[in-house]
Amino acid sequence: MTLLLLSACARTTGGAAAGDAAASGGPSGNPPAGDSLVLRVEHYGGFVGTNLRVGRIPDISVYADGRVITPGPQIAIYPGPALPNLVVVQLTPEQVRELTRRAQDAGVRSGTDLGRPTVSDATTTRITVRADDKKYALDAYALSEAQSQDPTLTPAQNAARGKVAGFVQELNDLSTGTAKSQPYVAQQVAVLATPWVKPGNDLPKQPGPQAWPGPALPGEYLVPQSKQGCLTVTGAEAQTVLAAAAKANANTPWVSDGQQWRVSFRPLLPDETSCNAFRAPQ
């Protein structure tokens, strides 16, 4: 991660409508202390199954201590590994402050109009900034799916969306910059469980059922209609579960109390403490 990339961010300005800002105006650029979340870009909604909406990993999470956590490269096989690949790089305090200022310039504040393109079933990009004990959020519907010059929007709305999209691209460039990344080692993990269904017969032979090494599945139902449960595993038990998951794939059946479950493992990020982190937005 270099200051050159941050300088590129500084040249991108914009404006948009805030989703749930705690106050009008923008952040001053002073991030909170410790490992509190400073900036996040994530997606929600869209035409995907309910099970896939829960526990989505944010595109980028920046913390006050300088950690930047993003999804890393994913191996192109099916079924994929049970554990998602998350990586972390380190910024300086000055770089973190620069990012919060760039977020303000990009329009993460109240009062600017992004409009709503006439695109169906698209995702919403949410950019969240926390500074000076306040939270500012910007929601941009169909930011990547809509035309860059949507004829149903005003020139001002298209211009604002372009600036927001530019800022998001700068953040993506930042997260894949020159700094050496390290694997993100989670201290706790959320386990999302649904009843296991045998996949099609066209797949290569898969490992057989594995004994579940953690608390009884499925936990609390977050999505009752699809029987998707969630539980949080912490401490030494979390490391046992993560070690078992590292040897499994996404279709591995896990046996808990005599029933087979399909499990998605979601390492919790530093600002997340339980399955409640996945309740909104969905």
Rank of each mutant, 00 (worst) to 15 (best):
L5D: 10
L5P: 02
L6D: 04
L6Q: 01
L6M: 03
S7V: 03
S7T: 05
S7A: 14
S7Q: 11
S7C: 07
A8V: 11
A8S: 09
A8H: 09
C9W: 00
C9I: 04
A10W: 01
A10H: 07
R11A: 10
R11K: 06
T13Q: 07
G14Q: 00
G14Y: 04
G15P: 03
A16E: 03
A16D: 03
A16Y: 04
A16C: 08
A17V: 09
A17D: 13
A18T: 02
G19S: 14
G19Q: 15
G19I: 09
D20M: 12
D20H: 13
D20E: 11
A21P: 15
A21Y: 10
A21L: 06
A21I: 08
A21D: 15
A21K: 01
A22W: 12
A22G: 15
A23W: 09
A23T: 12
S24D: 15
G26F: 10
G26Y: 04
G26W: 14
P27W: 10
P27F: 07
P27N: 12
S28E: 06
S28M: 06
G29V: 06
N30A: 12
N30C: 07
P31M: 03
P31I: 00
P31S: 00
P31V: 05
P32Q: 03
P32H: 04
A33S: 13
A33D: 13
A33T: 13
G34P: 03
D35S: 12
D35G: 11
S36I: 02
S36Y: 02
L37C: 00
L37A: 07
V38F: 02
V38S: 02
V38A: 05
V38R: 01
L39D: 03
R40K: 12
V41M: 05
V41I: 14
V41E: 02
V41D: 00
H43M: 11
H43N: 11
H43S: 12
H43F: 13
Y44I: 03
Y44L: 00
Y44W: 14
G46C: 00
F47R: 13
F47S: 07
F47D: 14
F47L: 12
V48D: 15
V48E: 15
G49Q: 07
G49C: 08
T50W: 06
T50N: 09
T50S: 13
T50D: 05
T50A: 13
N51W: 06
L52F: 09
R53C: 06
R53E: 10
R53N: 08
R53P: 06
V54P: 01
V54Y: 09
V54C: 09
V54D: 08
R56A: 09
I57F: 09
P58G: 06
D59S: 15
D59W: 06
D59I: 05
I60Y: 01
I60R: 01
